[in-house]
Simulated assay, not measured.
Amino acid sequence: MVTGSIEKAQRKVEGRNFDVRKQLLEYDNVASDQRKVIYQQRNDILEAEDVSEIITAIRNDVIGDVVTQYIPAQSFPEQWDLPGLEQAFETDFGLQVPISEWVKQDVNLMDDAIRERAQQIAADFYGKKCEGSEQIMRQVEKQIMLQVLDNLWKDHLASMDHLRQGINLRAYAQKDPKQEFKRESFELFRMLLDNIKAEVVRVLFHVRIASREEIEEMEEQRRREQENLQLQHAQSSALQGEESAVDNAPQKAATTPFVRSNEKVGRNDPCPCGSGKKYKQCHGSLA
């Protein structure tokens, strides 16, 4: 009877451990599917010689999303937040988009037309930024895309770990933790892709390629700062050497042994004053 109880308890424990491993495997499968998508995008960027077409598509998507955020689809003009949209374009991308003037000039202007005009202004602004440095910008575009992708992917993995740690609490609300994990992880992944696009466009619109004259000026300034640093180091070393010499001088004087000019008088010897008393009973008592 005891053996049977032990076997039943062992089967329950093994079954629970199996369910835990199965659940972890299903969570890992969700992260694995997302990892395949991200790694495929990364490989496409590395293998591509020119990512300008990808940048153009991403830029149009981001500008369109910003317009949709402040001008919802199928909404009335009274519901539009035109000052907020203009501020968003200026803050995030450094663009001056006079949308309020467009609407005043054409009261029948729709959100699609506003989106197309904003995308054209963004394209013209970025084209002027790339003038004279197209080859350099192609390299910068690849580097920025890879850097943004890697950084945001690492943040996404941390968010997935936090989600996994607390997903079992959904069971208290009579919800399946596995289904909730798949739903919320999908939402996090969708936000990741949107954030990658927005961050790439934001960085590219704020990046500035220095001219050859500016590079030479920065090199000259760096060379002068290096020379000044070396000069200050040499002066500091010389000053420390002088202070060390001054500090050592009294130490040498203090370590010189004292030499008596006369012979030392013992306590029981006659006092040198000629009184006839012992030194300890005469002037020695005063010492």
Rank of each mutant, 00 (worst) to 15 (best):
L152I: 08
L95E: 03
H283I: 02
E187I: 10
V107W: 03
Q34M: 14
K182C: 07
P272N: 06
T91W: 00
E184W: 01
H233V: 05
E134C: 00
Q135R: 07
H206Q: 12
G15D: 12
Q105E: 15
G241F: 05
Y279L: 11
V201Q: 00
A249H: 13
Q119M: 13
H162N: 10
I58R: 11
Q120E: 13
E214K: 05
R190N: 12
R117G: 02
I6W: 05
A249T: 11
G127I: 00
S236T: 05
K277I: 06
A122D: 11
N43M: 13
P270V: 07
Q120W: 00
L239E: 15
I167N: 11
V265W: 06
Y279S: 06
D61S: 12
P250M: 10
L146P: 06
E217T: 02
G274N: 07
Y39L: 14
A234I: 09
R35V: 02
Q232C: 03
Y172S: 09
V265G: 02
F93K: 07
E217L: 12
Y39A: 13
P83G: 09
E53K: 04
A88K: 09
M137L: 10
A210V: 04
Q281R: 15
Q143Y: 03
V207R: 05
V265L: 04
N268L: 04
K12S: 09
E214I: 01
L157Y: 05
S159I: 04
D269E: 15
E53L: 11
Q41N: 14
I121G: 02
A31Y: 00
K175D: 11
R208Q: 11
N151L: 11
H206Y: 07
Q235R: 13
G15Q: 10
K197S: 11
P270I: 04
E216I: 05
E263T: 07
D269I: 07
Q119S: 14
T68S: 12
K104V: 10
P250C: 06
E47G: 06
F205T: 01
A245L: 15
Q174K: 13
P98Q: 12
G84W: 08
R35E: 12
K154S: 12
R223Q: 13
L229T: 07
D112R: 06
V67D: 11
E216H: 05
Q235N: 09
